[in-house]
């Protein structure tokens, strides 16, 4: 009992009190009253903060951007770890397989700050790695300002998101594939099945439950706070590309921390959490109906 008590207290302070603090999204929190007084005595304003968010075109555009990036990440980023895991499983040399696997996890452990630093080096106008190559092979007449052109930003952001996560995300599929009974492959070989037939009829159906569960998770967390995306946007943004780098996370940060509009920013965050719960239950329900697999 004594052993669990510290963590119980910690959870109450650092998890449950902030959850209670969500109440201020229906108030006009006054920071000058101090946290406790401000929480209790601030004026109730009902849904005013939410109403205001929906009349702010910057919020609306940050919401669309968040959805846009999430869909891109999901559509392009979701299948890649699966394909990678399947192809990795087809490698015959065990040591090479281990090596590729180990290398592919590395970006997961590197900070986003480093990754964004590399994005700047790669796409810089003066002496950038990519512009250097393009000019060398005469593929472009003059250096392209990738990071100051709105249309290049989403592909860059999504590309590096995948670069950083595909290896780590593939672990769970690799584990699922390892658990497949090898006698199934042996039987298929005896029956004369080719490589692709084995992948299609044995590997894929065997990992289907894992795929579905992770897909539900991905859809459910589409609009949830995405710290990696926040860091990329926060570090990449400049006046030229502002329109495509403003996401809900950066908007909340600006409103809440920079401008100290605590109640308003909390309301934006709460709205987002509600949408996330709806998405998760929706995805779960759809999957239960269509495939019989579900989280809850």
């Amino acid at each position: 009992m004594i052993l669990v008590l510290p963590v119980i207290l910690w959870m109450i302070i650092f998890n449950y009190i902030p959850m209670l603090g969500l109440v201020i999204s229906f108030k006009e929190y006054d920071p000058y009253l101090g946290p406790l007084e401000g929480f209790i005595k601030s004026r109730w304003v009902g849904f005013n903060n939410f109403a205001e968010a929906f009349t702010d075109k910057y919020f609306i555009s940050s919401l669309w951007n968040t959805i846009y990036y999430s869909i891109l990440n999901l559509v392009i980023g979701f299948p890649i770890p699966i394909i990678f895991a399947i192809l990795l499983n087809e490698l015959t040399n065990v040591r090479f397989k281990k090596f590729v696997q180990t290398v592919s996890y590395l970006p997961h452990f590197i900070s986003w700050v480093f990754v964004v630093g590399f994005i700047y080096v790669l796409f810089a106008v003066d002496n950038g790695l990519l512009n250097g190559l393009l000019l060398k092979f005469n593929l472009t007449e003059e250096a392209i300002p990738f990071l100051a052109t709105p249309k290049y930003v989403p592909p860059i952001v999504v590309l590096f998101n995948i670069w950083k996560s595909f290896g780590w995300n593939s672990i769970i599929y690799i584990a699922a594939i390892t658990n497949i009974d090898p006698t199934m492959y042996e039987a298929a070989t005896v029956d004369g099945a080719k490589r692709f037939a084995k992948i299609w009829y044995i590997t894929l159906p065997s990992i289907k439950p894992t795929v579905v569960i992770l897909l539900i998770f991905s859809i459910g967390s589409m609009i949830s706070p995405n710290f990696g995306l926040f860091e990329q946007m926060y570090l990449l943004t400049n006046p030229m590309i502002q329109d495509v780098t403003e996401i809900v996370d950066t908007y909340t940060y600006k409103m809440g921390i920079v401008l100290s509009r605590y109640s308003y920013a909390t309301a934006v965050g709460l709205f987002r959490s509600v949408v996330a719960v709806i998405l998760l239950t929706g995805a779960n329900f759809t999957s239960k109906k269509l495939t019989g697999e579900s989280l809850f």
């Binding site: 959870m11 603090g21 969500l22 201020i24 101090g34 946290p35 909340t252 809440g256 921390i257 909390t266």
Partner: peptide, 26 residues
């Protein structure tokens, strides 16, 4: 009950601002 308490924290949080007020001001 304690396991449940910990599980809830994996999926719900007060978010950026309430946590910030707690740590910085509280």
């Amino acid at each position: 009950f304690f396991i449940g308490m910990a599980l809830v924290t994996m999926y719900f949080s007060g978010g950026l601002i309430p946590t910030y007020i707690l740590i910085a001001h509280g």
